[in-house]
Lab assay of single mutants.
Amino acid sequence: MKVMIRKTATGHSAYVAKKDLEELIVEMENPALWGGKVTLANGWQLELPAMAADTPLPITVEARKL
Rank of each mutant, 00 (worst) to 15 (best):
W34N: 05
P31Y: 08
N42Q: 01
L33Q: 03
P58R: 04
A14Y: 12
T39H: 04
V16C: 14
I59L: 08
A17M: 14
L48H: 00
R64Y: 12
L48E: 00
A50L: 12
H12Y: 15
L66D: 05
K18V: 14
A9I: 10
E29N: 05
V61H: 02
L46E: 00
T55A: 06
A14G: 03
A50E: 12
V38F: 04
L24C: 12
E29S: 09
G35C: 04
M1I: 14
W44D: 06
V38N: 00
A32N: 15
A14K: 02
A52G: 09
P56D: 08
G35V: 02
E22C: 13
T8G: 07
L24N: 13
E62G: 08
T60Q: 08
R64V: 13
T60N: 07
M4F: 07
K2Q: 14
A52P: 15
R6D: 06
A14M: 13
T10W: 13
L46Q: 01
E27Y: 14
L48Q: 00
I25S: 00
G43E: 00
V16Y: 13
V61M: 02
P49K: 02
T55G: 04
I5N: 02
R6I: 10
A52I: 06
V61N: 01
W34G: 02
L48P: 02
K18E: 15
P31V: 09
K19G: 14
D20Y: 11
L33R: 03
Q45M: 13
S13E: 07
R6F: 13
S13D: 05
A53E: 13
L33M: 14
N42V: 02
V61L: 07
G35I: 03
V16R: 00
E27M: 10
W34M: 03
I5F: 02
A41K: 08
W44F: 05
D54W: 07
G43W: 03
W44V: 07
K7L: 10
A53H: 11
A17T: 11
T60E: 14
G43R: 02
L66P: 06
D20I: 07
L48I: 06
K2V: 14
L21G: 07
V61R: 00
M4V: 14
P56A: 11
K7Y: 09
M1N: 05
V16I: 15
V16Q: 03
M28C: 12
Y15L: 11
N42R: 00
V38W: 03
N42K: 00
A50Q: 12
I59H: 07
T39L: 10
I59F: 09
S13F: 14
